[in-house]
Computed example of a mutant assay.
Amino acid sequence: MDSLNPEHPPLTMTPADHAPRVWRFLGTALWGLLIFVAMFVGQVGAILLLAALRGLPIDMASIQSVGREPAALALSVIMGLPATLLAVWLAIRIKKASFVDYLALRWPSWMQLLFGAVGLILLVLAWETVSRSLGREATPGFMTDLLKSGRDKGAALLLLIAFSVAAPMSEEVLARGFLFRGWSASFLRVPGAIILSSLVWTVVHLQYDLYFLAEVFTIGLWFGYMRYRANSLWLTIVLHALNNMTAVVLTMWLGG
């Protein structure tokens, strides 16, 4: 037998063979921070490029001035997507894992999509009812002003692409893709990963007040549950895109 032959010793597993192909809690957290920084750099970089093309000085005043323009803001959001994808790809590549499998880029069934959409609609309607009972706006005022200004200045399509395609993809790849994958494999398990990734996603929206942040968090919990239930990131990307697209269209063209 080869296993007893000194010239053919049995195969032994090295520690590298057992190395996990998923970043766990700390690795996911650190890489998540780097991914967020990459997204931010991509967004700010677009603003800086526009300022430079106009011959403006590269300072905070120029960034704020250009960044308030609807078209510039839309381009900023769009440019955050490739930066996010590149950083996530690098993190997964280091683990020698499959990008598609790591992020669960599988198309959901129509029943899963329907179930997720119905749950999202009920959740949004519940918040809409609470907003009306409290005399609050259903959409943050600054977003309403931005979208209507973009419509009047011919940037409606660009804003629609930014908020209905680029933003959902960037945020879902980070939150329900990379963060959920790593944290669900850690001591947090699935429930903790859903909660913590939803909190991180909420922090990304700190431009809102506490009321809207609470709404964002609950929607994040639903997205996290659907990501786990369907094992599909495409499902949450689609749900996120539908939610944003509905808000953008209602605000820009129907005054909702």
Rank of each mutant, 00 (worst) to 15 (best):
1 M>P: 05
1 M>T: 11
2 D>V: 05
2 D>P: 12
2 D>E: 11
4 L>T: 06
5 N>Y: 01
7 E>D: 14
7 E>R: 14
10 P>W: 09
15 P>D: 10
17 D>Q: 08
23 W>Q: 07
24 R>S: 14
24 R>E: 06
26 L>E: 10
28 T>P: 06
28 T>G: 09
31 W>P: 04
32 G>H: 08
32 G>F: 08
34 L>A: 15
40 F>N: 03
45 G>R: 09
46 A>M: 13
47 I>V: 15
48 L>N: 00
49 L>G: 15
51 A>S: 09
54 R>D: 12
59 D>F: 03
63 I>G: 00
63 I>F: 13
65 S>D: 10
67 G>K: 03
68 R>T: 06
68 R>N: 09
71 A>D: 06
71 A>W: 13
74 A>P: 05
75 L>D: 02
76 S>I: 02
77 V>T: 10
77 V>W: 12
79 M>N: 06
81 L>D: 05
88 V>A: 15
89 W>P: 06
90 L>D: 00
92 I>G: 04
93 R>W: 12
96 K>H: 14
99 F>P: 02
102 Y>V: 01
102 Y>T: 02
103 L>M: 12
104 A>H: 12
104 A>Q: 14
107 W>D: 00
108 P>L: 09
111 M>Y: 08
112 Q>C: 02
119 G>V: 01
120 L>R: 00
122 L>M: 11
122 L>F: 04
128 E>I: 00
131 S>C: 11
135 G>P: 03
137 E>S: 14
138 A>V: 13
142 F>Q: 12
145 D>H: 08
147 L>Q: 03
147 L>R: 02
147 L>Y: 14
148 K>M: 10
150 G>S: 11
151 R>V: 08
153 K>Y: 02
153 K>V: 04
155 A>M: 08
155 A>R: 03
157 L>D: 08
159 L>Y: 04
163 F>W: 13
163 F>L: 15
167 A>S: 13
168 P>Q: 05
168 P>V: 09
171 E>H: 08
171 E>N: 10
173 V>Q: 06
174 L>R: 06
175 A>V: 05
176 R>W: 06
180 F>N: 13
183 W>G: 10
184 S>G: 11
185 A>E: 15
185 A>Q: 13
187 F>G: 02
193 A>H: 02
193 A>I: 03
194 I>F: 04
196 L>D: 00
197 S>T: 14
199 L>C: 07
199 L>F: 14
199 L>T: 13
203 V>A: 15
205 H>S: 09
206 L>A: 13
207 Q>G: 03
208 Y>W: 06
209 D>P: 04
213 L>Y: 09
216 V>A: 09
217 F>P: 14
220 G>I: 12
221 L>V: 09
222 W>C: 01
224 G>W: 07
230 A>H: 08
230 A>L: 08
231 N>P: 00
232 S>A: 05
232 S>Y: 09
232 S>C: 09
233 L>E: 04
236 T>W: 01
239 L>H: 00
239 L>E: 02
242 L>V: 14
245 M>E: 07
247 A>M: 10
252 M>E: 13
